[in-house]
Computed example of a mutant assay.
Amino acid sequence: MTVRRVLCLLPLLLVAVVAAQHRSVLADGFRHLATAQWPWLLAAAGATCLTWVAAACTRQGAVVERLPGVRLLATQFAAGAANHLLPTGLGASAVNLRFMTVCGLPLARSSAALALYLLAESVARVALLGVLLLVFPDALRLGALLPEGVLGSVLVIGAVVLVVAAGVLGLVRRVRSAVVSFLRTALGEARSVHARPARAVALWGGSLAFPALQATGLVLVGRALGLQVPAAHVAVAYLAATVAVALVPTPGGIGSVEAALVVALVAAGGPAAVATAVVLAYRIVTVWLPMLPGALTLGALVRLKVI
Score class of each variant (00 low, 15 high):
Ala36Leu: 04
Leu42Phe: 08
Val131Ser: 13
Val172Pro: 02
Ala165Cys: 05
Arg176Thr: 01
Arg23Leu: 03
Leu90Asn: 02
Leu118Glu: 08
Met1Asp: 06
Val123Leu: 15
Gly91Leu: 06
Glu65Val: 15
Leu171Asp: 07
Leu239Glu: 06
Ala212Cys: 09
Ile157Arg: 12
Gly270Tyr: 05
Leu261Tyr: 11
Val6Asp: 00
Ala27His: 12
Gly158Ser: 07
Leu134Asn: 03
Leu183Ile: 02
Leu86Pro: 15
Ala74Val: 00
Ala178Lys: 07
Leu134Gln: 11
Ala195Met: 03
Thr48Gln: 11
Thr276Val: 03
Val175Thr: 12
Val262Met: 09
Ala82Pro: 09
Ala127Glu: 01
Ala195Pro: 03
Ala275Val: 05
Arg59Phe: 10
Gly69Thr: 08
Ala79Tyr: 14
Phe136Ile: 01
Gly226Leu: 02
Leu10Trp: 13
Thr35Asn: 14
Leu86Ser: 09
Arg283Gly: 06
Leu129Thr: 01
Cys57Met: 08
Val150Ala: 14
Pro290Ala: 07
Met1Asn: 08
Val150Trp: 08
Val279Gln: 07
Gly269Leu: 07
Asn83Thr: 07
Gly29Thr: 02
Ser110Trp: 00
Leu73Tyr: 01
Gly46Phe: 06
Arg66Asn: 09
Leu133Asp: 04
Val25Thr: 12
Pro87Val: 14
Pro68Asp: 07
Leu292Lys: 11
Leu225Trp: 10
Leu171Met: 11
Pro137Arg: 10
Val25Cys: 08
Val131Ala: 12
Val150Asn: 05
Val263Met: 01
Leu183Gly: 07
Gly61Thr: 04
Ser122Gln: 14
Val175Glu: 00
Arg141Cys: 03
Leu14Lys: 13
Leu261Phe: 13
Asn96Ser: 15
Val175Gly: 05
Ala55Gly: 03
Pro211Phe: 02
